[in-house]
Design a protein around this nucleic acid. Structure first.
Lengths: 342, 342
DNA sequence: CTGTTAGCGCCTTCAT
DNA sequence: ATGAAGGCGCTAACAG
C-alpha cells in the first residue's frame, strides 16, 4: 500500500524545502516562475494530492458544512438539500447530512458532533423549539460557527433564517377557497409548537376575517402529516352538526387522506367540497383528481440558505450579519379546488 | 471569541502533561484512577471537546464517509441515504453527500475531492459505466479506501456491491402481466449502458420466453424516466399495426405518463390494457388508479451498503473482502394491472 | 525569492 | 503511572 506523497516528498526530490513547494502549489507570489513550474510538474508526476485534513487542522476550517433535517426521505427536505449541495459544491464545501427523526436529543447530539468535527457552518431545520436546546444553539453562536435556519426556524437574535411566508400561504389558499364559493372552511394544522403551522393557521384565520367569515373552533383539527390522519380528521369533521364544505390542510398527505375519505363518503370534489394542500408534493399533481397545493420552492430555499451562509462566512465585517429571508409561496391550483375556470 | 480549550490547557491547569490528559480521556489503562478522575472532572468543567480534525490528521481516519448519487431529490436515492445515515450515525460516522447529476465528470471530481478529504469510505451509485473513469476507481482501490456500489454498480474485481435482483423484478412483473391475460407486452427501458435496465429487460425477455410468447423488437422502447417520455412511448406503441395490450415500464414516471396517454386515448385500464412500473415511488400507491410497481426497498439497500462498509473497515483480514449482496425485489400489485382478484 | 522555525491538537512510542 | 519527544501534513512568520 503505497503511502501518499506529501510536500516533503516532492521537496526532497527537488532538493528544496516544503515551504517552497507549498508556495508553488498555492500560487504564492513570492516564488520564481521557474521553480514553480518545476514543482508543479514533479507534483503532478508524483501524483501529489493535497491532504485536506492537514490544511483543515492548520487553518481551522474543515471545508465541511453540516445540514440537520428531521429526515431526508421526504421530498421537501431532499429538495432543500439538493439546493444546498448544488450551491456549495462549486465553492469547495462538502455537505454532511444529519437526521434528527424529530428527536430533540438527536438534534443536540448532531450539533455537538458537527461542532467537534469543526464544520464551517450549520444549516438546520429545527425539529422543535423547546427552550432546552437553546443552550446548544448558544454554544454554536459562541463558537462563531455560522448558523442558518431554514423552514423551521427558531427566533434567536443574530441567527439568520430562510423561510417561506407561511402566513401568506395560508392566507392565499384560504382566500382562493372562499373565491371558489366555499363558505365553511376547515383547517388541518400541525404541531402548534412549530411556527410554520402556527403561521399557516394565522393566515387562514386572517383570510376568514377579511372575508367576514366567522372563525369556528370546531373546524380546526390538529393532525399528523399522514394520509391516515387526514382520513380521521374528515371523519370527525363530517360528524359535526354543521360540517364544513372545504378543507385547507397544512399537509399534502393529510389532504390526500381527506380526499380519499370524502370520496368514500360519496362527497364530490370539487363540486361539493374543495380541498387545498400545502407542500406541493410530487403526487399532488400526478393524481387524476390533482390536488391544489401551496408550493414552498424547497430547492430555492436550499440555495438561499447556502448563499446566506456564504455571505456570512465571506464577510469581513466585524459584526454579525443577521439576515431573515422570506420566500413567497406560490399557489398551484388544481382540480381539487377548482370550480370556476381560471 | 474564546478559543477552544485543548488538552494542553487542561494539562497546564492540573500541572501535568498533555499525554496524561490524553490517556485519561481515552481510557488508557496506564493511568491511576485518581488522576483520571481529576482530569475528567476538570475537562468537563473547562468544557473540553475533542477536536476531531486533529485526531483525524494523526490517525488518518476522518470519520467521514462519502455517498455519491446522481441526485438526492428522488425518493429512491433519498431513502437509500436515509438507510445509510441511520446505520452509520450510531457508529460515529458523518455522511457526506455528493450529487453527480448523471454527469461523469462530476462523478470523477466528487471521488477526487472525497479522497482528498480523506474519507474513510465511499458508497456510490454509479452514474454510468464507461471505461474512462475506471482509472479513478482504481485510485480508490489503490488507496485502500473501502468502496461499495449500490443499485447502479460496476463490475470490478474486489469491489463490493448491494443491488436488487433487477432481472427477477423484470421477470416477476412480466409474469404477472401474463398471468392477468396480457399477451402483447411492451417494455419501456432505460439507458442500456446501465446494468439495471439491461437486467430488467432480460428478466422481461425471459418471462416471455418461459411463457412461449414471442419477443417483439417493436415493443421495446427506450425512454427517459419521465412522465412525458412515457406518454411519447405510448403514442409510438399505439401507432404500431399490432399494438400491445400491456406495458412493463422500468420507470414509475414513464408508467404514469403511459397511463395518462392511454386514458386520453380512451383505453381502459386494467380492462383493456395493464401497466406495471418499477421503483414503487410514493405516488404509485396514492393514485386513484394505483399503479403496480416493483419495490426496491431502498432503505434496506442503504442499510446493507452501510453494513458491508462497516464489515470491511472493521475487518482485520489481510485480504480484501468482496461481497455482492443482492436484495429481492417485491411486487406491489395494484389496480393498474389487476384484473383478477388476488 | 528561498530556507528555517513553529504550530494547528492529538496520540503514541520511548524513557523514566 | 507519568513525562518528554516526535510526527500526522500543511501553512505562515520571520529571516536571510
Amino acid at each position: 500500500m503505497n503511502k501518499k506523497t506529501t510536500i516533503y516528498d516532492i521537496a526532497k526530490k527537488l532538493d528544496t524545502t516544503a515551504a517552497t513547494v507549498s508556495r508553488a502549489l498555492n500560487n504564492n507570489p513570492k516564488i520564481s516562475a521557474s521553480t514553480r513550474k518545476l514543482v508543479l510538474e514533479t507534483a503532478a508526476q508524483m501524483n501529489y494530492k493535497q491532504n485536506k485534513l492537514a490544511l483543515a487542522l492548520q487553518s481551522g476550517k474543515s471545508g465541511n458544512i453540516g445540514v440537520i433535517v428531521p429526515r431526508i426521505d421526504s421530498n421537501f427536505f431532499a429538495s432543500v438539500i439538493r439546493g444546498i449541495e448544488d450551491e456549495l459544491q462549486p465553492e469547495g464545501y462538502h455537505v454532511i447530512i444529519c437526521q434528527t427523526h424529530e428527536n430533540e436529543k438527536r438534534e443536540i447530539e448532531n450539533i455537538n458532533t458537527l461542532l467537534n468535527a469543526q464544520v464551517d457552518g450549520i444549516l438546520m431545520s429545527a425539529s422543535n423549539v423547546s427552550k432546552e436546546n437553546n443552550s446548544i444553539i448558544k454554544r454554536v453562536i459562541e463558537k462563531n460557527v455560522p448558523l442558518i435556519f431554514f423552514d423551521r426556524k427558531k427566533n434567536i437574535d443574530g441567527v439568520s433564517s430562510v423561510t417561506i411566508n407561511d402566513f401568506e400561504g395560508g392566507y392565499l389558499a384560504t382566500k382562493h377557497l372562499i373565491g371558489e364559493g366555499c363558505t365553511k372552511i376547515a383547517h388541518l394544522t400541525g404541531d402548534q409548537s412549530l411556527e410554520i403551522y402556527e403561521n399557516r393557521n394565522n393566515g387562514y384565520k386572517k383570510a376568514l376575517q377579511d372575508s367576514g367569515i366567522e372563525y369556528n373552533e370546531d373546524y380546526i383539527i390538529q393532525t399528523k402529516s399522514s394520509v391516515e390522519a387526514g382520513r380521521q380528521a374528515v371523519e370527525k369533521l363530517l360528524k359535526l352538526k354543521n360540517p364544513p364544505n372545504a378543507i385547507f390542510s397544512s399537509s399534502d398527505f393529510a389532504a390526500l387522506g381527506a380526499i380519499q375519505e370524502l370520496k368514500e363518503q360519496g362527497i364530490r370534489i370539487p363540486e361539493d367540497f374543495c380541498v387545498f394542500g400545502f407542500g406541493n408534493e410530487p403526487f399532488t399533481k400526478f393524481m387524476e383528481l390533482s390536488i391544489s397545493s401551496v408550493d414552498q420552492s424547497p430547492m430555492e430555499m436550499g440555495k438561499m440558505a447556502a448563499q446566506v451562509f456564504l455571505e456570512q462566512v465571506n464577510s469581513t465585517e466585524k459584526f454579525k450579519i443577521e439576515k431573515k429571508v422570506v420566500l413567497n409561496p406560490e399557489l398551484h391550483i388544481r382540480k381539487s379546488s377548482l370550480r370556476h375556470a381560471l
